[in-house]
């Protein structure tokens, strides 16, 4: 029986060690150490400006950490070996906040591009995969639309289809629910669960949407601007019920501090 699970579950899917990141010498996050298990839905949460997106940029290699390491299934980006870097890049997909679709390409072309770049599939096979991915995110019929011709929610779903094009082992989602109506947001959450269920994909989500956090997160780390690091780690419901840190309680209870 085929089971889409990683063969070495002991190796973390993502492992950050003593990670310090920032801009122009200004430290935003200091000495972060955490690990994400394969197949886990892992949320990076915190208020605005706490460094969630900065952490994501450092994890996916867009920004170089000031110090520390990030490993994916035990492997790290190598600055000197482009082939190794490309091999590693194939294993994860990223959904950016605004979808980040290439505006000069149709949705079909957007999703097809990673397949054209990284696989030896024939054009017709690529079209089959593209149609499947777009149908999985509910965009059948919109394949030949340009990003400018679709709504914000559709752009996010198309961005997710593109992120999933290569069936990545890890998917990073940057604020997937931001700016979406509650129904679309819930459908996106269901889609995330379905992807994990079907493929055993590890999913790292940057978000501050409480509804999503409580409904789909297996585990969260909470960042705080003042602390420049992780102030809480665990299952969201456990944290909401048991944490004694007022910052965690305030965040997870929508600003209502317990009396």
């Amino acid at each position: 029986m085929a089971e889409p699970i990683p063969p070495h579950p002991a190796t973390p899917a993502i492992e950050a060690t003593q990670l310090t990141c920032g801009y122009d010498g200004n430290v935003v996050l200091q000495d972060l150490t955490f690990a994400v298990k394969p197949g886990e839905i892992f949320f990076i949460i915190g208020g605005s400006g706490c460094g969630k997106s900065t952490l994501l940029r450092n994890l996916i290699g867009i920004q170089t950490p000031m110090s520390g390491t990030v490993k994916f299934f035990g492997q790290t980006f190598s600055e000197h070996d482009m082939a190794a870097r490309r091999a590693l890049l194939k294993t994860f997909g990223v959904l950016y906040q605004g979808g980040a679709l290439w505006s000069s390409l149709t949705l079909r072309q957007n999703v097809a591009l990673p397949l054209e770049e990284y696989t030896g599939l024939s054009p017709s096979e690529i079209q089959e995969i593209v149609a499947l991915k777009l149908s999985q995110v509910g965009l059948t019929g919109f394949e030949d639309y340009y990003p400018a011709e679709i709504s914000g929610g559709m752009k996010k779903r198309a961005g997710l289809a593109r992120a999933l094009a290569l069936d990545p082992a890890i998917v990073f989602l940057d604020e997937p629910s931001a700016g979406l109506d509650p129904i679309t947001s819930r459908r996106l959450d269901e889609l995330v669960l379905q992807i994990r269920e079907m493929f055993g994909t590890t999913i790292a989500v940057v978000s501050h949407e409480l509804a999503s956090i409580f409904s789909i997160a297996d585990r969260v780390i909470m960042l705080e601007r003042g602390a420049k690091g992780i102030i809480a780690e665990g299952k969201p419901r456990d944290l909401a019920a048991n944490s004694r840190d007022p910052r965690v309680i305030e965040f997870l209870h929508r600003g209502d501090l317990p009396t």
Partner: peptide, 24 residues
């Protein structure tokens, strides 16, 4: 075939039929 694979095959089959390129 496992249930998951059958489900995905059905999705692929459906998307194959419904995804018709339109000529601009």
């Amino acid at each position: 075939l496992p249930e998951k694979v059958q489900l995905l095959l059905n999705q692929l089959s459906t998307s194959h039929e419904t995804s018709v390129p339109f000529d601009r």
